[in-house]
Design a protein around this nucleic acid. Sequence first.
RNA 1: CGCCGGGUAGAGCAGUGGCAGCUCGCGGGGCUCAUAAUCCCGAGGUCGGGGGUUCGAAUCCCCCCCCGGCAACCA
Length: 476
Amino acid sequence: MSKKFYITTPIYYVNDKPHIGHAYTTIAADVLARYYRQKNYRVYFVTGTDEHGAKVAQSANAAGMEPKAFCDQNSALFKETFKALNISNDYFIRTTDERHRVGVVKFLSKLHSNGDIYEGTYEGLYCVGCERFIKEKELVDGLCPDHKKAPEKVSERNYFFKLSKYLPAVRKLIEDGTIKILPHGREKEVLGLFKQDLEDFSVSRENVQWGIPLPFDEKQKTYVWVDALLNYITAIGYGDNDAFFEAWWPADVHVMARDILKFHCVYWPALLLAAGLPVPKVVYLHGFFTLDGKKMSKTLGNVIDPNDLVKKFGIDATRYLLLTQFPFGQDGDIKESLFAEKYNADLANNLGNLVSRVLNMIEKYCGGTVPKDVVSPIPLAHVGDYIELLQFDRALKELWEAVMKANQIIDEAEPWKLAKDPGKREQLETVLSQLAALLLEFAAAIEPFMPETADIIIGSLNEARITKGDPLFKRV
RNA sequence: CGCCGGGUAGAGCAGUGGCAGCUCGCGGGGCUCAUAAUCCCGAGGUCGGGGGUUCGAAUCCCCCCCCGGCAACCA
C-alpha cells in the first residue's frame, strides 16, 4: 500500500471574491498534491469555503439576499476560479454543508462532556464603528482611534475553551518536532506566542445568527474560527465516516499564509488534543505579498482577479508567474506590469521557442520520429527535493537552467548545418534525440506546476509523426 | 508601545564570514532550426547610514533611517 498524503489549504471566507492571494495559496498546495500523486502517494487534497459569521450575514443583507443564497453564489465563484486554475482538489468543503455541521456538533459535544468548555462572561469594550471589540491599550484618549468615539462596555455570556490546560502539551509537540512549523523562522515566532497573552478563548457568540448552534446551548452559535478549523477533519468524514477519517487523518501538511499562524499552530493543536485526536504533521506558513509595494486592498483598488490573469496569459502561465515572483515562505512584492515581461522571456522565448525548434527539426530532419533512444544530457537532480521543501522558486530555477542549457546545446551543435552534410547524420540524430529526451524529462518535472504544458510536450513527442505544431506560449 | 519581515546593478530577486551572483532590460557581435525567437561578449553595484568584532563582513554585534506586514474574519 502506498503512503497517504493529506494536504489542505485554508478555507476561504466567502465575504470576498477570489483574488490572487487565494490563488497563490491554492496553487502552491496543488503543486504539492500533483507532485505526490506523481510519486504514487495516495493523495487527498482539500480546499473550500468558510461561510458563517456576522460579516457574511451582513454582506448578504446588503446584497438583499438570504445568507445561504449569498454563500452559494460566492462559494461557487471560488469553485469556478479554482477550476479555471486547474486546481486538482479531491474535495471542496463548505462550512454550510450538513456533514460539516454534524462534525462540529460531535466535536463540541465531546469537548463539553470532557469539561474543556465552560460558561463564562466576556466583558469588553465594543466600538460600534469598527463593529468589534477593541483593547484598552488601543484607545487614544479613551476613544477609538479610527472613529473618535468612546466604545461601549459590553458583556456577553459565552462558552470558553480551556486553552490554558493544553498549552504546555502543544508547546512540547512543537518543540520536539511532532508538529513541524515551516519555514523554520516561523517556529520561533510561534514559540514566542507562548510567552505572550494566550488566554482561554470563546468558542461561541451570543448575538451572531448565521452560524452553527452549539449542541449544549442552541441560543449560541459556534465561533466562526472554531467552525472553520474543524473543516480539516469534517472534510474527511469526522462525524459521518469514521473509516475514511481514520484513513486520512492527521494532515500531512496544512498550507496557508502566515497571518493565521496563531489559529493553526496554537488553537488548532490544542482543540485536537482536547478531542483526543492526533495533531497535524506540518504547518507551512507562506509569505505575504504586496502589489506594487502596496498592501492589497479593496479600498486601494489594486486587487487582482486571478481569472483576469488566466484570460490574459492562460492557466499554466498564471500558475508559473505567481509562484516565481519571490521565494515561497518569504514576503515579497508583485508587480503586475512585470508579468508580461516574464511571460515573454521565460515562457514564450525560452521554453516555448525551445519546444518549437526541437519539434521542427525532428519533423524536418528526421521525418517526424525521434531516431535514437538516448538519455537527457542535463540531469534535473534536485527539482523533487526542492518541491518537497516547498522551495518552488528553486525548483523552477533549476528547470529553467535546463531550458537555457538546451538552447545553448542547439546553438553549439548547429543541427541545421549537420543536416546538410550526410557524413554528419549520426551527430545530428544524436543531438536531436538528446533534446527530445531532455524535453520529456523536463515535461515530467514541470507537470505539478504546469500540467497542461507537460501534457502538450509529452503528447507532441509521442506522436507517430512529430510535427512542429502551434506555439506553446504566444508572445503577448 | 509590542511582535515579525525587508532595504544588494536601471528593474525584480538570490547570496548569511573568505575574490559581489541570477533573470529581465540595455549596448555590441554571431546564427538562421525557431514564436523579431536563440547564442556569445560587454557596460552597470560606496551590498540603506554610522560604529564595532574579525586576518577578512553584504553576511556577526550595537545604534539610527526608510519601507511593509501582524495585532483588526483579505491568501
